[in-house]
């Protein structure tokens, strides 16, 4: 983005979409949206639309990829070719999505009780249908619900958000415009049962105080996301 044309993003403490600095966008989560997958979830997070599906535990192919001590977790995050406002993209994995997929694998290797299923694989597939900033935390939020929907044993939900610095101030859950001009980005996800950090990435320039405050803001927001995840599962049990 051309920083010279940067619009003012915070006016009288309000953001471009009317939110306060600590507000999440509207988040809707529905579990069990697909028929074939063992578990699935749809997340609408601001203008992000993301669908997640899970298969497994199941046999590993090829066999030499299996682990005799635990289940192998495969995570695939992809943006659809039509997902962004900008030009048609090639679709499929690129360097960014390969890195995010690797982060997703790590998050769910921690959360899933993989040692209960040696020599098997758990495949998590997340497709970003429409993107509007903060897709990685929204994608992992959806994947976490899909795993619970599939009945795969987990230690809790992964919930969280990204906190960024906009016009010199920390703001929760950046949308696309804020993200483009953002001065920092700190996506953090927590295990709902023990508040351990499962995802932590950061870029930008932050002082120690700003850094710590970013993590704290993510934690507060993660509680709200987690409540919505729980609701989406309980709704299916009524």
């Amino acid at each position: 983005m051309n920083k010279a044309n940067k619009p003012e993003l915070i006016i009288d403490g309000r953001r471009t979409d009317g939110r306060n600095l600590e507000d999440l966008r509207s988040v809707k989560i529905e579990s069990g949206v697909l028929d074939n997958a063992d578990g699935s979830a749809m997340v609408e997070w601001g203008n992000n639309k993301i669908i997640a599906g899970v298969y497994g535990p199941r046999e590993v192919f090829p066999k030499h990829f299996s682990d005799p001590y635990k289940a192998v977790v495969n995570f695939r995050y992809v943006m659809c070719s039509f997902s962004s406002l900008e030009e048609h993209s090639r679709g499929g994995p690129n360097r960014r999505s390969i890195e995010i997929s690797k982060m997703g694998k790590h998050v769910f290797e921690n959360l899933i009780l993989t040692e209960q299923f040696p020599n098997t694989a758990i495949d998590i597939d997340v497709e970003v249908l429409q993107s509007d900033g903060g897709t990685r935390v929204a994608a992992f939020t959806a994947a976490s619900v899909a795993l619970v929907d599939a009945g795969i044993p987990v230690k809790g939900f992964a919930g969280g958000v990204s906190v960024g610095k906009v016009d010199g101030r920390l703001a929760v859950d950046l949308n696309k415009i804020e993200d483009n001009y953002g001065e920092s980005d700190v996506p953090v996800m927590f295990n709902s049962s023990n508040s351990e950090i499962l995802l932590l990435q950061m870029d930008g320039l932050l002082t120690r105080e700003e850094y710590e405050r970013s993590i704290d803001l993510c934690y507060e927001a993660s509680k709200k996301v987690n409540a919505l995840q729980v609701d989406s599962i309980k709704k299916k049990m009524e």
Binding site: V148, G151, P153, V154
Partner: peptide
């Protein structure tokens, strides 16, 4: 459908 952590029992499934 449950796991034990720090001497306490937590659910792992719905």
């Amino acid at each position: 459908g449950a796991y034990v952590e720090n001497g306490k029992t937590y659910s792992s499934v719905v």
